[in-house]
């Protein structure tokens, strides 16, 4: 339980199911399990990476934490209380501590508001600053993200993608949040700009004592930025470990395949690319047992019938795979140390 004290935010058994009906008369409702029983904790001051391919539910997880999407069940513990049990008013106050940066900076800024209005909006909503004080704070925030203070009266369309993302970051920072959920914040940007924005985020984290949940599908970016990494597949966390452990010793067959897909600039290197068979299964109709078993090269007999759960491999390395059933010591209280 000692580690527990560091946990700033704990997600427990979070589920988000969508029901789909093909018509009014359709009796057999199908359920898409976008997030299916995720346990994850974010420690104070860390950058937790969340990787997975498109459609695996990583954005849904991120948005559920902020209650931009209402999860089906589970709990999200922040500062000792469950965010999911909050009333409307409390949810708004919670947003002072938890903020989000979206993927597409072009779409996440209101095109009819000036930069000053955009960054000033959260200040007004929470009554943090007024009049002259507000103007000063806006300028301060702009400088913080490396933008010129003269930009306050300009509109979003006058800026480049990287600049827009800086504006979005400034808006998120306006309320002095504790945790920022970054939903693929750089994947819409040019590679050269990506590095600048990532370095800015790293710098801001140090300066302002922030904690990030960094959602991405770019493993190199995650390696550059994150302290710990969680790998998601079809709504579930399949592996979670410290960055170095995960990149040095990937344990889940899916993680192995993902890491082998990182392009290696050295033509001499002999690293072998693991090509996964088949496609990501339809989330409305996932395979039985372990959802990965149909594409897994190491599948055992029980993989198709029995779903594995997260087991501890090393101190802070957890994996959800039957291959490690014998090696691992079952941890009594999984949640507390994830």
């Amino acid at each position: 339980m000692a580690l527990n004290a560091q946990n700033l935010l704990e997600v427990k058994d979070l589920k988000k199911y969508y029901t789909i009906k093909s018509g009014m008369r359709d009796k057999n409702k199908r359920v898409v399990k976008a997030v299916d029983g995720v346990d994850i904790s974010i420690r104070k001051g860390e950058i937790l990476g969340l990787v997975g391919e498109s459609g695996c539910g990583k954005s849904t997880l991120g948005r559920s934490i902020l209650r931009l999407i209402e999860p089906t069940s589970g709990s999200i513990i922040y500062k000792g209380s469950d965010i999911l049990s909050f009333k409307k008013k409390d949810v708004r106050m919670m947003r002072k501590d938890l903020q989000i940066i979206f993927q597409d900076p072009g779409a996440s800024l209101n095109p009819r508001m000036t930069i000053g209005e955009i960054i000033g909006a959260p200040l007004e909503i929470f009554g943090l600053a007024k009049g002259k004080e507000k103007e000063d704070r806006i300028l301060e925030l702009l400088q913080l993200v490396g933008l010129n203070g003269d930009y306050v009266n300009r509109f979003p369309h006058e800026f480049s993608g990287g600049q827009k993302q800086r504006i979005a970051i400034a808006r998120a920072l306006a309320v002095n949040p504790k945790i920022i959920i970054c939903d693929e914040p750089v994947s819409a940007l040019d590679v050269s700009v990506q590095a600048q924005v990532l370095n800015l985020m790293k710098e801001l984290k140090q300066k302002l004592d922030l904690t990030y949940l960094f959602i991405s599908h770019d493993l190199s970016v995650v390696h550059h930025l994150c302290d710990r990494v969680a790998v998601m597949y079809l709504g579930k966390i399949v592996e979670i470990a410290d960055k170095d452990q995960l990149y040095r010793n990937p344990s889940h067959p899916y993680t192995k395949a993902l890491l082998s897909a990182i392009p290696n600039p050295d033509p001499e290197s002999k690293s072998q690319r693991i090509i996964l068979e088949g496609d990501v299964p339809n989330p409305a109709d996932p395979p039985s047992g372990c959802t990965f078993h149909k594409r897994c090269a190491y599948r055992l007999e029980k993989c198709s019938s029995e779903a594995p759960c997260l087991k501890r491999l090393e101190k802070s390395h957890f994996v959800s795979c039957h291959l490690y059933d014998n090696e691992s010591k079952q941890v009594e209280d999984n949640n507390s140390n994830l």
């Binding site: 948005r63 902020l66 931009l68 708004r92 947003r95 002072k96 903020q99 989000i100 979206f102 993927q103 597409d104 779409a107 996440s108 800024l109 209101n110 095109p111 009819r112 508001m113 909006a121 959260p122 909503i125 929470f126 979005a168 808006r171 998120a172 306006a174 309320v175």
Partner: peptide
Amino acid sequence: DYIEGAVAIGETVRSIIFKYILP
């Protein structure tokens, strides 16, 4: 996204309609 962004910074329904949707 900017509507979701407005929700995320705690805008009320009223100001979402008048400041973000209507213009």
